[in-house]
């Protein structure tokens, strides 16, 4: 199917594409480079790209700041926790909508989607006040709850589009073979759905990891994940480029790696199946 292209043209496209790709990636690259410089080199003029004294001191310093690890763990717990909780709620829901569609199924799906369209500021005050009254402000539990709820529609939708692709006849075959509802779910549905569930998990960990409205507004110090922790560097007294870069690199590296693995799922997940 692929068209034959002359090598000259291919070389030209290669140069242009790499130039643009590196330009787009440059801020990240620059951050990573800076993280290996000393603070003086980080703001040196002219800036050095490769020929500087590579140092790991920023990383050791960031790690030694007692709170960095806490915030990192907060990010892990909040993003994983909200995703797993979301999956636990969404898997049965998506299962029933995909395999036992009722007349209302479409309406329910669309309605779930509509909750995702609700701008967070519309419910900021009540959530803030409720959290205050229930002692959930600046707790991981509180953030897990909120992030579960805001990502639940995406989780349900992604799972739904994956489950839809499992042929219904297979589940009927299991039923004919004497499998009860739970056996059907455990022995047939789950193994077939694992790839879809894994992609959903991946995308939602990413979304939750980077969520920066609720995490900024509902946490102070204890439960702050990396999004909020990094934001604290914006104050003038925190202006240490190299250390900021090291902290940033640590914060984005894990998710960058996960993200590269989930390119395809990203499209499906974020367009609610409208583009596959």
């Amino acid at each position: 199917m692929s068209r034959r292209v002359s090598n000259r043209r291919k070389a030209l496209v290669t140069v242009i594409a790499w130039a643009i790709g590196i330009a787009i990636f440059f801020p990240i690259l620059w951050t990573v480079l800076t993280s290996f410089k000393t603070e003086a080199e980080a703001i040196a003029s002219p800036p050095s790209f490769v020929f500087f004294d590579w140092t790991l001191e920023n990383y050791t310093e960031v790690n030694e700041r007692s709170d960095y690890f806490l915030h990192f763990m907060n990010s892990v717990i909040i993003s994983l926790g909200s995703t797993l909780l979301g999956l636990a709620i969404a898997i049965p829901a998506a299962w029933s909508m995909a395999f036992v569609p009722a007349k209302r199924t479409k309406d329910v799906l669309m309605w779930m989607l509509s909750t995702k369209m609700l701008p967070p500021v519309g419910v900021l005050i009540p959530i803030y006040l409720l959290f205050r009254d229930f002692g959930l402000l600046d707790t991981r539990t509180g953030l897990v709850i909120v992030l579960t709820l805001i990502n639940l529609p995406i989780i349900v939708w992604m799972l739904f589009t994956y489950f839809k692709e499992i042929p219904g006849e297979i589940l009927e075959a299991a039923r004919m073979d004497g499998a009860g509802l739970w056996e059907e779910v455990i022995h047939v549905l789950t193994p077939m759905a694992v790839p879809g569930i894994a992609s959903t998990l991946l995308l939602n960990v990413i979304l939750a990891w980077n969520e920066a409205f609720w995490t900024l507004n509902l946490t102070a110090a204890k439960a702050a994940p990396l999004t909020a922790f990094i934001a604290s560097y914006s104050s003038p007294e925190g202006l240490f480029y190299a250390k900021l870069s090291a902290a940033s690199t640590l914060a984005i590296a894990p998710i960058l790696v996960l993200g590269w693995f989930s390119q395809k799922q990203l499209v499906r997940g974020l367009t609610f199946g409208a583009v596959k």
Partner: peptide, 11 residues
């Protein structure tokens, strides 16, 4: 016991 059109084997 049923044999389905798509065979419906567990992949």
């Amino acid at each position: 016991a049923m044999v389905f059109q798509s065979y419906a084997l567990y992949p």
